[in-house]
Protein backbone atom coordinates (compact mmCIF):
# COMPACT_ATOMS: atom_id res chain seq x y z
CA UNK A 1 0.00 0.00 0.00
CA UNK A 2 1.31 3.38 -0.83
CA UNK A 3 1.78 6.01 1.79
CA UNK A 4 -1.13 8.36 1.99
CA UNK A 5 -0.12 11.98 1.72
CA UNK A 6 -1.52 14.48 4.15
CA UNK A 7 -2.26 16.89 1.34
CA UNK A 8 -2.34 16.42 -2.40
CA UNK A 9 0.98 17.79 -3.66
CA UNK A 10 -0.61 20.54 -5.70
CA UNK A 11 -2.77 22.30 -3.09
CA UNK A 12 -1.18 25.52 -1.91
CA UNK A 13 -0.16 25.71 1.72
CA UNK A 14 2.27 27.62 3.86
CA UNK A 15 5.98 26.86 3.90
CA UNK A 16 8.83 28.49 5.77
CA UNK A 17 12.12 28.58 3.97
CA UNK A 18 15.33 29.06 5.81
CA UNK A 19 18.27 30.01 3.63
CA UNK A 20 21.87 30.32 4.81
CA UNK A 21 24.04 32.45 2.58
CA UNK A 22 27.38 34.13 2.37
CA UNK A 23 26.97 37.75 3.43
CA UNK A 24 27.10 39.27 -0.06
CA UNK A 25 25.23 41.98 -1.84
CA UNK A 26 22.70 41.02 -4.45
CA UNK A 27 21.59 37.81 -2.79
CA UNK A 28 18.22 39.16 -1.87
CA UNK A 29 17.61 39.87 -5.56
CA UNK A 30 18.75 36.43 -6.58
CA UNK A 31 16.33 34.89 -4.12
CA UNK A 32 13.33 37.04 -4.91
CA UNK A 33 13.76 36.54 -8.66
CA UNK A 34 12.99 32.87 -8.14
CA UNK A 35 9.60 33.81 -6.70
CA UNK A 36 8.72 36.66 -9.01
CA UNK A 37 9.41 34.57 -12.10
CA UNK A 38 6.74 32.18 -10.92
CA UNK A 39 4.42 34.97 -9.84
CA UNK A 40 4.53 33.81 -6.25
CA UNK A 41 3.98 36.41 -3.59
CA UNK A 42 6.27 36.43 -0.56
CA UNK A 43 4.21 36.62 2.64
CA UNK A 44 7.11 37.47 4.85
CA UNK A 45 10.83 37.94 4.53
CA UNK A 46 13.43 38.38 7.20
CA UNK A 47 17.17 38.77 6.75
CA UNK A 48 19.60 38.64 9.60
CA UNK A 49 23.11 37.82 10.64
CA UNK A 50 23.75 34.47 12.25
CA UNK A 51 26.05 33.31 15.02
CA UNK A 52 28.58 32.41 12.32
CA UNK A 53 30.64 35.32 11.03
CA UNK A 54 29.97 36.19 7.41
CA UNK A 55 26.87 34.02 7.19
CA UNK A 56 23.37 35.45 6.83
CA UNK A 57 20.02 33.82 7.15
CA UNK A 58 16.93 34.56 5.12
CA UNK A 59 13.60 33.39 6.46
CA UNK A 60 10.94 33.41 3.80
CA UNK A 61 7.29 32.50 4.17
CA UNK A 62 5.27 31.67 1.08
CA UNK A 63 2.16 29.84 0.14
CA UNK A 64 2.50 27.39 -2.70
CA UNK A 65 2.27 23.73 -3.63
CA UNK A 66 4.65 21.06 -2.42
CA UNK A 67 5.90 20.41 -5.96
CA UNK A 68 6.62 24.06 -6.49
CA UNK A 69 8.43 24.57 -3.20
CA UNK A 70 10.56 21.49 -3.83
CA UNK A 71 11.65 22.90 -7.14
CA UNK A 72 12.19 26.41 -5.80
CA UNK A 73 14.33 25.19 -2.94
CA UNK A 74 16.51 23.23 -5.33
CA UNK A 75 16.97 26.32 -7.44
CA UNK A 76 17.83 28.33 -4.35
CA UNK A 77 20.48 25.80 -3.41
CA UNK A 78 21.91 26.22 -6.88
CA UNK A 79 22.73 29.88 -6.29
CA UNK A 80 26.48 30.10 -5.98
CA UNK A 81 26.59 31.95 -2.66
CA UNK A 82 23.86 29.97 -0.96
CA UNK A 83 25.23 27.70 1.75
CA UNK A 84 22.06 25.81 2.44
CA UNK A 85 18.32 26.00 2.03
CA UNK A 86 15.71 24.18 4.06
CA UNK A 87 11.94 23.97 3.79
CA UNK A 88 9.81 23.63 6.86
CA UNK A 89 6.19 23.08 7.54
CA UNK A 90 4.37 24.47 10.53
CA UNK A 91 5.14 21.54 12.83
CA UNK A 92 8.87 21.48 12.15
CA UNK A 93 9.71 24.89 13.52
CA UNK A 94 9.21 27.35 16.30
CA UNK A 95 8.50 30.75 14.95
CA UNK A 96 7.52 34.22 16.03
CA UNK A 97 6.90 37.66 14.73
CA UNK A 98 7.16 40.90 16.57
CA UNK A 99 4.53 43.62 16.41
CA UNK A 100 4.70 47.23 17.54
CA UNK A 101 1.59 49.30 18.27
CA UNK A 102 1.53 53.06 18.74
CA UNK A 103 -1.43 54.14 20.83
CA UNK A 104 -2.54 57.39 22.54
CA UNK A 105 -1.37 57.50 26.12
CA UNK A 106 -4.49 58.18 28.15
CA UNK A 107 -7.12 56.31 26.22
CA UNK A 108 -9.73 54.34 28.16
CA UNK A 109 -12.43 52.19 26.59
CA UNK A 110 -15.26 50.52 28.54
CA UNK A 111 -13.50 51.41 31.75
CA UNK A 112 -10.39 49.48 30.75
CA UNK A 113 -7.01 51.06 30.28
CA UNK A 114 -4.44 50.04 27.77
CA UNK A 115 -2.20 48.88 30.59
CA UNK A 116 -4.78 46.25 31.59
CA UNK A 117 -4.97 44.98 28.08
CA UNK A 118 -1.22 44.88 27.70
CA UNK A 119 -0.63 42.83 30.77
CA UNK A 120 -3.39 40.38 29.88
CA UNK A 121 -2.09 39.92 26.32
CA UNK A 122 1.45 38.99 27.16
CA UNK A 123 2.60 42.22 25.58
CA UNK A 124 4.74 44.92 27.13
CA UNK A 125 5.08 48.64 27.02
CA UNK A 126 8.24 49.49 25.17
CA UNK A 127 8.32 53.27 25.61
CA UNK A 128 6.08 55.99 26.92
CA UNK A 129 6.33 59.36 25.23
CA UNK A 130 4.39 62.53 26.01
CA UNK A 131 1.48 61.81 23.72
CA UNK A 132 1.65 58.14 22.97
CA UNK A 133 3.14 54.88 23.98
CA UNK A 134 4.51 51.96 22.07
CA UNK A 135 3.49 48.45 22.88
CA UNK A 136 5.43 45.44 21.82
CA UNK A 137 4.14 41.95 21.38
CA UNK A 138 5.86 38.84 20.16
CA UNK A 139 3.80 35.98 18.85
CA UNK A 140 2.23 34.34 15.87
CA UNK A 141 0.38 36.43 13.33
CA UNK A 142 -2.96 35.55 14.86
CA UNK A 143 -1.90 36.68 18.33
CA UNK A 144 -0.49 39.99 17.24
CA UNK A 145 -3.55 40.52 15.11
CA UNK A 146 -5.85 39.84 18.08
CA UNK A 147 -4.11 42.50 20.08
CA UNK A 148 -4.36 44.81 17.10
CA UNK A 149 -8.12 44.37 17.10
CA UNK A 150 -8.32 45.01 20.81
CA UNK A 151 -6.21 48.14 20.55
CA UNK A 152 -8.09 49.60 17.66
CA UNK A 153 -10.93 51.04 19.77
CA UNK A 154 -8.29 52.96 21.74
CA UNK A 155 -7.48 54.98 18.66
CA UNK A 156 -4.45 53.03 17.50
CA UNK A 157 -2.08 55.37 15.66
CA UNK A 158 0.18 52.93 13.94
CA UNK A 159 0.73 49.20 13.74
CA UNK A 160 3.68 47.34 12.32
CA UNK A 161 4.61 43.71 12.24
CA UNK A 162 7.94 42.10 11.39
CA UNK A 163 8.57 39.17 9.15
CA UNK A 164 8.67 35.74 10.65
CA UNK A 165 11.77 34.42 12.32
CA UNK A 166 11.85 30.69 12.63
CA UNK A 167 14.11 28.20 14.30
CA UNK A 168 14.05 24.52 13.48
CA UNK A 169 13.63 21.70 15.95
CA UNK A 170 16.95 20.15 14.94
CA UNK A 171 19.82 20.17 17.43
CA UNK A 172 22.45 20.78 14.83
CA UNK A 173 24.80 23.77 15.13
CA UNK A 174 24.94 26.19 12.21
CA UNK A 175 28.70 26.26 12.50
CA UNK A 176 28.93 22.50 12.35
CA UNK A 177 26.81 22.52 9.21
CA UNK A 178 29.11 25.05 7.54
CA UNK A 179 32.17 23.03 8.55
CA UNK A 180 30.65 19.89 7.13
CA UNK A 181 29.86 21.72 3.94
CA UNK A 182 33.42 23.00 3.63
CA UNK A 183 34.90 19.59 4.20
CA UNK A 184 32.59 17.69 1.92
CA UNK A 185 33.15 17.19 -1.74
CA UNK A 186 29.64 16.02 -2.18
CA UNK A 187 26.81 18.28 -2.94
CA UNK A 188 25.52 20.86 -0.50
CA UNK A 189 22.31 20.20 -2.24
CA UNK A 190 22.09 16.75 -0.79
CA UNK A 191 22.21 17.98 2.81
CA UNK A 192 18.54 18.31 3.48
CA UNK A 193 18.06 18.07 7.19
CA UNK A 194 19.04 20.83 9.49
Amino acid sequence: MSLKLKYPTSTPREFTLSVLTEDKSGLINQLTILFTKRKININSLNVSVTEVKGVSRFTIVIETSKDMIDNIVKQIRKLIDVLGAFVYEEDQIFYQEIALYKVPKYAIVDGKSIEDLVSKSGARILVIETDYMIIEKTGKAKETHDLYQKLEPFGLLEFIRSGRVAISKSTRKTEAYIKELEASNSNKLSIKDF
Binding site: L83, L181, K188, S190
Partner: peptide
Protein backbone atom coordinates in the same frame (compact mmCIF):
# COMPACT_ATOMS: atom_id res chain seq x y z
CA UNK B 1 36.96 25.73 -4.56
CA UNK B 2 34.00 27.73 -3.35
CA UNK B 3 32.59 26.42 -0.13
CA UNK B 4 29.00 27.09 -1.10
CA UNK B 5 29.33 25.56 -4.58
CA UNK B 6 29.76 21.85 -5.22
CA UNK B 7 29.69 21.42 -8.96
CA UNK B 8 30.28 17.68 -9.16
CA UNK B 9 27.86 15.68 -7.06
CA UNK B 10 28.91 12.07 -6.74
Amino acid sequence: KIRSYHPYPE
